[in-house]
Amino acid sequence: MTELTWQTGDTWIVATGVVCAMACALIGNFLVLRRMSMMSDTISHAVLPGLAITFIVTESRAVVPMFVGAVLAGILTTVLTQWINRFGQVERGAVMGIVFTTFFAAGLLLIEQAGDRVDLDPKCVLFGALELTALDRINLSLGPYEITAPRALIVLSFALILNLLFVAVCYKELRISSFDPELATTLGFNAQIMHYLLMVLVAVTAVAAFEAVGSILVIAMLIVPGATAYLLTDRLGVMIAASMAIAAFCAASGHLATVVLPQWLPIKSVSTSGMMATLAGLVFLVTALFAPRHGVIARRRTKLKRKPWNSERKNSFPFDEKRTCA
């Protein structure tokens, strides 16, 4: 049979992957709920020129300046998207398409310019290098404890804690501004402020995850767990918990699959981040089909049970009260 070749490196990879997936899934829920999943696409791509410019200016890969630069770029895209949308009278999806491709392309050009001095590889930009992040370990002293951990893991842990704090503290504000932004604003919880706060955190998360999973797969990390959990439950709290559990599961089993699969199948090697995202997609597919109430099969079944007039005249049928209570 197969034997599992598991090393310390693998543990670090799994830890990094799980933390990354959970940080992304947590904040991603609100993108899904606000129907602005495309915004993750925009931001994750747009942080690239921020990273490149910061690198060229500071000539180092120090974490803090990189973050500041990338987050600024992320906010700039958010503002630009809204601005072009409002004044340019162009459809929102098109605006995002314009903004993020332009930013991303500019970022690629900048990386090329700095090419000889940077270890930013365009391939890594797209898919990340989760396997390599485990090698780049640093020492961190927390009081009496000395921890040696991958740099990416530490950065991602901070992102996860930040996201957890944000969602825990602003839970009610996030709920009302996602559900009914106008009411939120009239009650004094400015929906615009919540929107930008959320975008800042998406940008922070995207930058933190950038090294590990790249700018495309981070979208899968942000959106897929939330979308899956959305189909599984009707409670916001449960949705958030479920999305994080799904994310952690996909990350852990994704790396396990990359260790195990090459022994079973005639393939050489599998990228961990790729496997994680593929698994997440499969989990979504299964959920979309079999989810208890919102799945395709469950919906078809309830439709068959209903009498034909029910689905058509949902709001006008005089006795609809009893039907919906059931």
């Binding site: 709920l33 129907r35 709920r175 996602s178 559900f179 009914d180 106008e182 959305y230 439950t233 009707d234 409670r235 916001l236 449960v238 949705m239």
Partner: peptide, 10 residues
């Protein structure tokens, strides 16, 4: 019609 009634809230 201004809100999303599929929102996960009771």
């Amino acid at each position: 019609e201004s809100v999303d009634w599929d929102f996960p809230a009771s």
